[in-house]
Nucleic acid binder design. Structure first.
Lengths: 327, 327
DNA sequence: TTGAAAGCGCTAACAG
DNA sequence: CTGTTAGCGCTTTCAA
């Protein structure tokens, strides 16, 4: 049913090789036969079988992407920019979501490799020596985004530690004397890769301790309740530094429902600068995480690796503070 | 470098066929040889080459998805649910974004077919007879989501017309005497497929005309300015019915900046019920568009088609009105 | 300039 | 139960 090179060859009375030369613009073919072949190919609506080509060439022109959740705005933006950049270079994108399940993550990576993607872009949740070894052994190049898991694996991200210091200093500069740092549960962080959150926490702690600011760490899922308690327990005006805008948005929703005025009764700082924020009032202060640039850079780097070129093993992109009205 | 069936066959002193039987759990093989082969395969870390398998079997176990923009929350939710469901059935997902460019759309669909995806799930922007013919001629099954383009092509969506009637009646029931319908420019709608918006508009018009309600249609990109004018020109309290939550969010942002109280000074109704709304105050009234169910159903249907089974050509899913505080 | 043939790694049909 | 063989559709090398 589908037209193959052989079909065209039969009709034109030439060999498959010649048809190949005509169709793929290869040299060493007589212009006239070429025209004849192209004409027939067009009439028959010939389309190449990219699976067969991949097998023959050992190259699929596709990238495997593993992220955990495209509903997370950060990853939606990331995937969007990866897809756009990949397309420009003629690559297609195989996306899989691993739902924060380390076993599933490994399974999915394996299957992408089985499908012979030419390169992998990963935002891993797994961590540890075994996982790093697993990745290193894979027969395809890979780029890690966001959660660094090993200095040996090519990485793209921002300086989370410094960004967190900058954010904390900015909060302090607004006069807050008590800051709560909100982040995912430590229990999860032991199993999962939480490099970003760890670095942010470290930056926070180093700053508040050095500046002698009172603080607490809220690292469990009942953070809204914890904040309520905090509000009734502390007299001074407090600020919340959320390790991710998603937390900040949930908290803002909660506080608004209670009639608490954000920016007046309490200060909030986010992290990531996701674009949903444009619709939120008051405007949330946050850290702009250049996710589009990161996606683009990841594609550039992975293609360089695929082509055997050298890249910087660690690339840190520029971030900056977004001043909103929430502090 | 990569281990093949032949490598294992050589080591075990059997033929490729036998190794195949062992590895793929096929019958007619002696348990002992099977064990021996499996052991070697494991030691060598054998992994199947899915490209080769695809070529041999004429099946890639992958679905091609074409949407225009994963940054649009509606499509992020859709893609998420498609990916999850596909994974359950052992299918992988090739996603491409066409940026509302009809030519690009055709190019991308063609390339997905060249890559031998087993089925396509499309949210087309193109329309017209040529495009429908193009789709019909494709040698793979396909499902259309959202924008119906032909009664002959399998479609999944909601009854946009009826939903719009329900929404309009609900607005009217709140006492509004003047309603503005906000939707994308007509100019774009002539070229692009705007089935959803057209149906919503039709439902709106049929209702306001029948109930003798004053109305206007704002179908250009300067809708915020248009609304400002409307607000100063009309004395009665007006409602805006936005054909898409995205418009509603932009408008709410604009109005909030001007200090206009939504739900009090003006009424707003959205469409789609995207999940960003949970963070927005006041809560936007909207129409819940069951995008997750649609994605799931699309995968089920496309797999049925791939397997040669029959499906309902048109599937309408349940929607419902979300009552917020914006009316 | 063109043809023939081998091979990519796997599946499947047919013998033995 | 196992081996052999012929593809799948394309690329690539070597002859002619």
């Amino acid at each position: 049913m589908r037209v193959t090179l052989q079909d065209i060859a039969d009709i034109c009375g030439v060999s498959r090789g010649t048809v190949d030369r005509a169709i793929n613009n290869k040299p060493r073919i007589h212009p006239e036969t070429k025209q004849r072949i192209l004409k027939v190919a067009k009439e028959l609506g010939y389309r190449p079988d990219l699976v067969a080509r991949s097998l023959a060439m050992g190259k699929t022109m596709s990238l495997g992407i593993v992220v955990f959740d495209i509903l997370n705005r950060y990853f939606a933006q990331l995937v969007n920019s990866i897809e756009n950049e990949a397309k420009k270079h003629g690559y297609f994108v195989n996306i899989t979501l691993q739902e924060k399940d380390p076993e599933m993550e490994i399974r999915l990576i394996n299957e992408l490799v089985d499908r012979r993607v030419d390169g992998l872009i990963l935002c891993p949740v797994s961590k540890g020596k075994d996982f790093v070894n697993f990745l290193k052994k894979l027969p395809v190049p890979k780029i890690i985004i966001g959660n660094m898991i090993s200095p040996d694996l090519p990485f793209i991200g921002i300086n989370e530690y410094q960004a967190s210091i900058d954010a904390t200093e900015m909060i302090i500069s607004k006069g807050y004397k008590y800051i709560a740092f909100v982040c995912p549960p430590l229990a999860d962080r032991n199993k999962e890769n939480s490099y970003s959150h760890d670095e942010r926490l470290r930056g926070f702690l180093d700053t508040v301790r050095q500046k002698d600011i009172k603080y607490t760490i809220i690292d469990h899922w009942k953070y809204c309740e914890a904040i309520d308690e905090l509000l009734s327990a502390r007299k001074e005006k407090i600020a919340l530094f959320c390790s991710g805008d998603i937390y900040a948005l949930e908290i803002m929703k909660h506080l608004k429902n209670k009639g608490i005025k954000i920016g007046e009764d309490i200060g909030i700082m986010g992290f990531d600068g996701i674009d949903t924020l444009q619709y939120i009032s008051p405007k949330l202060s946050s850290i702009y995480n250049p996710v589009e640039d990161i996606g683009k850079k990841a594609v550039e780097n992975i293609i360089n690796l695929i082509e055997g070129k050298d890249i910087d093993n660690h690339t840190l992109m520029d971030y900056h503070i977004i001043e909103g009205n929430s502090l």
